[in-house]
Design a protein around this nucleic acid. Structure first.
Lengths: 342, 342
DNA sequence: GTCAAAAATGCACACGTGTGCAAGCGGAGT
DNA sequence: ACTCCGCTTGCACACGTGTGCATTTTTGAC
């Protein structure tokens, strides 16, 4: 059995209330007593019971984090950002992966409610509205990150995908490309729509038409989905000269597919990714992509939840806070001017 | 304020003890009363307070997981395995990354002791012995995964790296290679020693000598370390014809470096990785590697901790359990017979 | 030395849940 | 009618911590 304040009290010859106050730094207790108690506590290797404390204080010093897949390199970098901030502020993390499975989402929300987490960060691109509503109704603040339905939530961190996609597209246009295609991930909801929208806006601004068959979405964002989606474009009579991919993972699959098809990148076809995951610089050729500040996004999300937990006494909690972060274009070697037409 | 069993008791016209028993399925309570109480609980959206419960039962239904870096694709796959099992058994996970920083390790252990996690899984290749001892002394079972000092712990899951490395080496020897070099990660402790040892054993069995300069270790296991470590071998007068890398990430860096140096893989030099991370199949050329069953390793680790928590009434907790799992060789395209010498 | 004010400490209850024990109730057997 | 038994339920305390309030001790001024 772990040592309790009562054990310390007995050893120090005081009441348990005095111990409690001394350890919490309550000024009512004299400095000498406090010091003595602290010493005893250290000797006995005392660690306060978070359970007992939270029972009284209604605070657990724990945050819940829902992520679709822990092993997705994009989300795991965000996770790291969340963790750095949370740990710095003395908060622990309950992390669960939903696998985009409604049943698992239910279990996760139940576990988080039972553990009375102080706040929740949802990093899944989609999440059952009924589940999140249940949390909100019971006073658990929620911050969503890059969620497809960010409008449904009062607090969100969002990367400006439209801007990113516009920058990529503009760059391709400046290189001379006119036949630019988009390969999306239909499962990602708003994210793929934003990235497509950015491309469309910039193309329209340049007066370039986009044939319907130049927009293709496949259900998934892994390399294998990129590989599969590529076939659609290879079958076209008029192939695009540049392929804007939903994310780096799909682009990696596309690079592989183009290589198998014997098509030179970037000489014959330019390819772009999105996210700048760790491996994108090690592809062959290195991938031109858009760098989302993933670590920073996670950190901001954590800071936002924590702010909601200690509302500024003057202002009170903000009624609505949606932060949109911008990234930057990373030009590497998978893009070049289009092949000269004879 | 969340609803409590007292609220339910009031609404159902019984005492809170009856509610407690009914919800826990205690057979003392009549079926009709139980059913009625369950109904009321559902109506009021009751979720038991894990804090209050654990105060009485000394169980938190939570496991602590320490990982060196959450965003390491190797560990995050193991994490996913842990999570799948834990969630299935109704356990939540406290996940923290240590960054191999002693100070962070201290904070993590403190947080886990305060939250009274039922057990801990350490996935970090190194971890402060004094910190883990502190947990053990207070009755928290620990399972280590691929830890460099597995002998110091009673319960561990370990992948048979020696065997894996032997398989890789044997395969290279069978291809005809005689000049085989090893690029290690000096920070990974036992892991790199095992992999080196496997190579040495197989080389010796084949009667092939290993020049001292064919063994090179660099401090880190990321692509950039592979890239940096490659220089050592490129400077050699007698270059190796095959390069066995500590892991896939370093191999990815090596592939990049060889390409920059204008050396054909596998025609001029074979390269192997280790782990089979997601991206290894998408490198150029696809990487020959050794597949660790990462998800399974995580799952087994979780099962082992859970077993320790519910010791078999007959046998009691096993005094020692160390499980060594085997993987399999994945031959892809980064390996070929050595170039013919004229 | 007295007394009041200030400082330090202890008492007792609360948080939400689980459980040993006693108590209530109804029915069956004598 | 009385007793005994089994089935249900309530009472009361415990888990470890925090805190309002009463209580004790110390301090300072006269």
């Amino acid at each position: 059995m772990a040592t309790t304040i009562k054990d310390i009290a007995k050893r120090a010859g005081v009441s348990h209330s005095t111990v409690s106050r001394a350890l919490r730094g309550n000024p009512l207790i004299s400095d000498e007593t406090s010091e003595r108690i602290r010493l005893v506590a250290r000797e006995m290797s005392y660690h306060p019971s978070a359970a007992a404390r939270s029972l009284k204080t209604n605070q657990t010093q724990a945050l819940g984090v829902v992520v679709s897949n822990i092993d997705d390199p994009f989300f795991s970098e965000i996770l790291q950002g969340i963790e750095d901030v949370a740990q710095g502020e003395g908060y622990s993390l309950f992390i669960s992966s939903s696998q985009s499975d409604t049943n698992r989402e239910r279990m996760i929300v139940q576990a988080m409610r039972e553990h009375r987490v102080d706040g929740v960060i949802i990093c899944s691109s989609s999440f059952s509205t009924s589940q999140s509503r249940q949390l909100l109704e019971h006073g658990v603040p929620i911050v969503v990150v890059n969620n497809q339905a960010a409008e449904d939530y009062r607090y969100s961190i969002y990367h400006d995908d439209v801007d990113g996609s516009r920058q990529i597209t503009r760059y391709l246009i400046e290189l001379g490309h006119q036949r630019i295609a988009y390969l999306g991930n239909s499962l990602s909801g708003r994210t793929t729509l934003d990235r497509l929208s950015g491309l469309q806006q910039e193309m329209e601004a340049a007066g370039l038409p986009i044939p319907a068959e130049y927009i293709h979405q496949v259900p998934g964002g892994e390399p294998e989905h990129g590989l599969a989606g590529l076939d659609h474009f290879l079958d076209l009579a008029d192939r695009p000269t540049a392929l804007v991919c939903f994310n780096d993972m799909m682009a990696i699959g596309v690079l592989k597919g183009l290589q198998l098809a014997g098509i030179q990148v970037p000489a014959e076809c330019s390819v772009t990714g999105f996210d700048n995951i760790v491996f994108s610089v090690f592809t062959n050729p290195p991938l031109t992509t858009f760098d989302q500040p993933k670590h920073y996004i996670g950190a901001e999300a954590a800071r936002l939840v924590l702010d909601l937990l200690r509302p500024d006494p003057e202002k009170g909690a903000p009624a609505l806070k949606s932060q949109t972060l911008k990234g930057r274009l990373l030009v590497r070697k998978s893009t070049a001017p289009p092949p000269v037409l004879y």
